[in-house]
Amino acid sequence: MAELADSGGPAGLSEVSSAVVVIDVLRAFTTTAWAFAGGAEQILLAGSLADALALKTRHPDWVSVKDGPPAPGFDTVNSPGHLRSLDLTGRTLVLKTTNGTAGALAARNAPLVLCAGFAVAAATARALAVHRVRRTTFVITGDDGLAEEDLACAQYIAGLAAGSAPDAELCLRRASRSVRAAEIAEGLRHGYPGIHPDDVPLCLEADRFPFAMRAVPTAPADGEPAYMTLRPHHV
């Protein structure tokens, strides 16, 4: 059984299912998928920009990533178009975004937390089947739980997990007409930093990668802020 849950931040989940799939299509969990495809070993999901900077300060070799324009202390931005050009082999990334990381941290107490966008949709559905999940909550992180691109992706994954054959192209068309896709296009027209021309096309490519992405709570070292660790989950 699957249900959609609204999560606008850490307080967004009042109940925890046996599995939670946190959706952020545009762009966090497409960016992370491309980072893993580029060789990244793990991605730490930070609760705040200050926490991300603190982790970066303690580990200067880690790659720090944030939403929006470049900023001091951060190595790059939350953009699949930008990250796909980097050699991330064996690297650890620290990521803080407005919606995706907050949604994952809100679900931290669930037995199974998967982070997803269209790029890893089929693999995410396979992971739910392999883990024999009986009840899944899909957390729609964008637009206070109303983001059309996230809803379309959640419904696509839920359909695959249920054994049906959802129309991927229909779901992708819905996502392409979303408010967030339009905002990114507008940002490109005005030269807004932190956006790559290929971001939306990369985010709206279904089943590009064969792995899911699993997030687990991690006990930080002394003096480090709390975070979750995201890794590829091969099924």
Score class of each variant (00 low, 15 high):
Ala2Pro: 10
Glu3Leu: 15
Asp6Tyr: 08
Ser7Trp: 03
Ser7Gln: 07
Gly9Ala: 13
Pro10Arg: 15
Ala11Trp: 07
Gly12Thr: 05
Leu13Phe: 11
Glu15Leu: 04
Val20Met: 14
Val20Thr: 15
Asp24Asn: 03
Val25Lys: 04
Arg27Tyr: 11
Arg27Val: 11
Thr30Ala: 07
Thr30Gln: 00
Thr31Gly: 06
Phe36Arg: 06
Ala37Cys: 07
Ala37Asp: 13
Gly38Leu: 13
Gly38Pro: 06
Gly38Ile: 05
Ala40Pro: 09
Glu41Lys: 15
Ile43Phe: 09
Ile43Ala: 08
Ala46Leu: 12
Ala46Glu: 13
Gly47Cys: 13
Ser48Met: 04
Ala50His: 06
Asp51Lys: 13
Asp51Gly: 09
Asp51Tyr: 10
Ala54Lys: 13
Ala54Val: 11
Leu55Ala: 10
Ser64Asn: 04
Ser64Phe: 06
Asp67Phe: 04
Gly68Leu: 05
Pro69Phe: 03
Pro70Lys: 00
Pro72Leu: 01
Pro72Trp: 01
Pro72Phe: 03
Pro72Thr: 00
Gly73Leu: 03
Asp75Asn: 05
Pro80Gln: 00
Arg84Pro: 00
Arg84His: 06
Ser85Tyr: 04
Thr89Tyr: 02
Gly90Thr: 01
Thr92Phe: 01
Leu93Glu: 03
Val94Leu: 05
Asn99Met: 04
Thr101Met: 02
Asn109Lys: 11
Ala110Phe: 08
Leu112Tyr: 09
Ala116Phe: 00
Gly117Ser: 15
Gly117Pro: 06
Gly117Ile: 03
Phe118Leu: 07
Phe118Lys: 12
Phe118Pro: 08
Val120His: 05
Ala125Val: 06
Ala125Gln: 14
Ala127Trp: 08
Ala127His: 05
Ala127Cys: 10
Leu128Cys: 12
Leu128Ser: 13
Leu128Thr: 10
Val130Gln: 13
His131Pro: 04
Arg132Ser: 14
Arg132Tyr: 12
Val133Glu: 13
Thr136Cys: 14
Thr136Ile: 12
Phe138Pro: 15
Phe138Thr: 15
Thr141Asp: 03
Gly142Ile: 09
Leu146Lys: 12
Ala147Leu: 15
Glu149Ser: 08
Leu151Glu: 05
Leu151His: 14
Ala152Arg: 13
Ala152Pro: 14
Cys153Lys: 14
Ala158Glu: 11
Ala161His: 09
Ala161Ile: 13
Ser164His: 11
Pro166Ile: 09
Pro166Ser: 02
Asp167Asn: 15
Ala168Glu: 14
Leu170Ile: 10
Leu170Trp: 12
Leu172Pro: 08
Arg173Thr: 15
Arg174Asn: 10
Ser176Met: 10
Ser176Glu: 14
Ser176Cys: 10
Val179Tyr: 11
Ala182Val: 04
Ile184Gly: 02
Ala185Leu: 10
Glu186Arg: 12
Glu186Leu: 15
Arg189Tyr: 00
His190Leu: 09
Tyr192Met: 15
Tyr192Arg: 15
Pro193Asp: 02
His196Arg: 01
Pro197Met: 02
Asp198Leu: 02
Leu204Gly: 01
Glu205Phe: 00
Phe209His: 00
Pro210His: 00
Phe211Arg: 01
Met213Arg: 00
Pro217Lys: 02
Ala219Met: 12
Pro220Thr: 00
Pro220Ala: 01
Glu224His: 08
Pro225Met: 01
Pro225Tyr: 06
Ala226Met: 07
Thr229Arg: 09
Leu230Trp: 01
Arg231Lys: 04
His234Gln: 05
